[in-house]
Design a protein around this nucleic acid. Structure first.
Lengths: 253, 253
DNA sequence: AGCCGAATGAACCATACCGTACACATCAAA
DNA sequence: TTTGATGTGTACGGTATGGTTCATTCGGCT
């Protein structure tokens, strides 16, 4: 997954080599929800989907904001963040190519159920609420697919509640890395320890210690925000059962 | 809310005075989802609902079991429990008169999304899957109500994920007590520290310390499994913002 | 009356994690 | 080349919670 320098010729707002690559490769639909649809529905949607890069820190929807689009990631990670009164924040749930942002739409609500922020850069397909409704009405498979994802979202949430109560920081960090890996095309992605600590509600120092351990064990390697998964099986060994449970309930299985 | 001794004349399988009381009073539908329906739908359902007591420890559905009924609590608390490989378990989410057990049905799945266990005794209305489907097809308000609850369930789950990451044991215990209080008719209910510790994944000793504190502060009182809420406002003061957020998203608001 | 189980309080030490602070290396911009 | 920002390692003490065990009290059953 090494990036050639010529990619930088196409730098976008996203600004990193990572997103530059997506400007090149970023037209392919990889989102599993979209790909699970019947050909007619896919054809219908392909004409209406707009693909564009998502960059770290991009806010897809503010908390409670009107949901104007459904956003289907093809690569990258988007998180629903909880913001507490004391200023602290944590991830409620994360979304990648196995799902989409905008379940509220399916649930008959027009307002975002949390602040959605891009945590790992990639690219996503956007569909306007009108086009979504049209597809929703027209194709049974669209209705089914959205319900199916809603269900797996609930599974992920339930698992996370339990995981956050019972499992160690290391288990949760590795679980998050595994999920991220599943959502990226290669073994390498851009992610700082700072970001991981924000997402999981840990100190950066805690994340740092955990990562050092994984580095020493040869499980991952990293350097100033560039992470590489070296030994996926070993990484799973450090994670909790929650990883596999969530995976099994998802479209990535 | 004192229980008179004559209640014990009607002791049921549930075996406590609490459930005996419900055998007497347990016919009134108090479930907010049911009560939110239009009169026609309510009439349709009343003829098909079966009301009966739920006792502590009753397993409504085993994890992954076929969901044969929707269960609408009128009083009491039912929890979805997560069971880990090492034998530990915690609550994923709890349900009372503001919701129902069997969201999986709405999500197009026939299998339970977790083991559902009664934590606080009460009584509930049961509806067969066939009757539910009939009502679902016949009344728009039924579809809407189930979607509305699904959404508030997701809100509760999201809040719990964050809460379990960021908030103290005391905040979570008091939040759980407040939610339970909201789901009961009186200020008194039957609940052991042991049960609370199981639900929240804490040591009983931890819960014990917290409860002593609340007792000393005059916020609650308790004696061998009988809890009384003495000062609700003060109790809210000990809980985190999550309590009110979940409440505001629910039908109890 | 006596017994046993259930519910609670309390003690011990262990440890995982936090809050904070600082030091260092690397990269990018000037 | 310098400078500043960023990403990371690490160290300090503090605290919340866990694991375990024991004692006590109360209530219900025989």
């Amino acid at each position: 997954m090494a990036l050639s320098t010529q990619d930088t010729l196409l730098i976008t707002a996203g600004n990193t080599m990572q997103s530059a690559r997506h400007a090149v490769l970023g037209n392919e639909i990889r989102n599993k929800v979209l790909l699970s649809l019947r050909p007619e529905a896919q054809d219908f949607l392909r004409e209406r989907l707009a693909s564009r890069p998502i960059a770290v820190g991009d806010v897809i929807f503010a908390d409670g904001a009107p949901v104007t689009h459904a956003v289907f990631p093809n690569e990258g990670v988007i998180s629903y963040m909880a913001e507490m009164e004391d200023g602290r924040s944590v991830e409620k749930v994360s979304i990648g190519l196995e799902g989409f942002v905008g379940v509220a739409l399916v649930m008959g609500g027009g307002n975002a159920m949390g602040r959605t922020v891009v945590q790992v850069a990639g690219y996503a397909s956007w569909l306007s609420i009108d086009d979504l409704n049209a597809a929703h009405e027209r194709f049974v498979c669209v209705r089914e697919a959205m319900l199916r994802y809603s269900k797996s979202l609930i599974v992920q949430l339930m698992e996370s509640v339990a995981c956050n109560s019972l499992h160690t920081a290391e288990q949760r960090v590795t679980r998050w890395l595994l999920q991220t890996h599943d959502r990226m095309q290669g073994d390498e992605f851009i992610l700082t320890q700072e970001a991981v600590s924000q997402v999981l509600g840990l100190r950066r120092a805690t994340v740092s210690g955990i990562c050092s351990g994984l580095l020493d064990a040869g499980v991952i390697s990293y350097h100033r925000g560039h992470v590489t998964i070296r030994d996926r099986a070993a990484l799973e060994g450090h994670a909790c059962e929650c990883y596999r449970r969530v995976l099994d309930a998802s479209l990535l299985r």
